[in-house]
Write a protein that binds this DNA or RNA. Sequence first.
RNA 1: GUGGGUGUAGCUCAGUUGGUUAGAGCGUCUGGUUGUGGCCCAGAAGGUCGUGGGUUCAAUUCCCAUCACUCACCCCA
Length: 357
Amino acid sequence: MYTFLDRGETSITLKPEMTASVVRAYLEHSLGKQQVLNKLYYISPMFRQERPQAGRFRQFNQFGAEALGSEDPSLDAEMIIMSYDILKELGLKDLTIKINSLGVPKSREKYKKLLREYLEGRLDELSEESKKRVETNILRVLDSKDERDIKVVEDAPMLIEHLDDESLEHFEKVKQILLSAGVSFEIDPKLVRGLDYYTHTTFELISGKVGSQSALLGGGRYDNLVEELGGKSTPGVGFAAGIERILLACENEACLNLPEQKLDVYFVRLDKELAKQTYDLSLLFRRKGLNVELDYALRSVKAQMREANKLNARFVLFFGGEEYENDKIRLKNMETSEEQTLELTNVEGILKTIKGA
RNA sequence: GUGGGUGUAGCUCAGUUGGUUAGAGCGUCUGGUUGUGGCCCAGAAGGUCGUGGGUUCAAUUCCCAUCACUCACCCCA
């Protein structure tokens, strides 16, 4: 994390994620007393002091959702389905949903003991890093990328085989809902979280198009977090999505179909002497709600037309010349190349023609 | 934190085995006859070759340092 002293010598830390902040806001405003279930969302920048790489920045943006106040597995499923639908709607195709269950801390502790016994029996086959992980964060050994570790982990006991009955039932219900919603998923027993407040469901949406940092979003249940932050025991479930990483996936799948930028009108000034009048007229049309551009460099008509074309203008208004002397203005539809002459004083009429097209 | 790669025009990149004026495509600007775009044609502008130092008669090119970017490991809340 980025931590530093401010001018008052107070230690400040930039937030690396939002869930804790959401829970703190939930507690500060006693949201739990206003209604049983609170569904919340956020969009915010986050900061992490890591070396940047593809899909990873030190400052990045996340959006996420949290549901506080219910342990109903249908909410776990809802989070997965919603986040999947969002990515689908963006047009992403190369997506995999991975889910797992961490059970409850009690059964997880028992499992960790089993895993430790197993790994300590084959310690000399592990990578140097994983030897350390056995001490610091043993569950992380499971998703090591080192081939030696992968081989050892193949025969290791899996958490999901050592869940208590209640946790299994919860996990079963989540899977049922996903299946009935037509959402396919993979169970990944190696999808683990290190911290104690996590319970039951964990999930990630993986893209095959963004390089090594492949999780576009991740989430899960944290029934013990609110209590850990000083509130009364309140279950919760949520997810967080990395916006830049999603954009990278969209770019690599060429699927982000943003609407084409269109300009309503480009004003072409026919006479250089009319620069001021052209400018004034453009302001008038902008105030009427049109998206208007014009030349600021006294350029030729041809140059202005080229710019109008480049800016994707729907219409061009030719201002000046003979028409101007007769209180008229010439309007050109850039798509059809059709032109018509309109009364300069009849601003509403010009507006109507442009807006109606 | 560790390791690799790359820095040349606004962008994408070529190139210089050390030697006069450093190139292309795209983009920009101007023009191709009175006041009309896209396509096409012609021309122009634009670079202290990331920065600092060293070697050399000579460095954009070789060496060192530094900065930036980038990929992977690590981390993963």
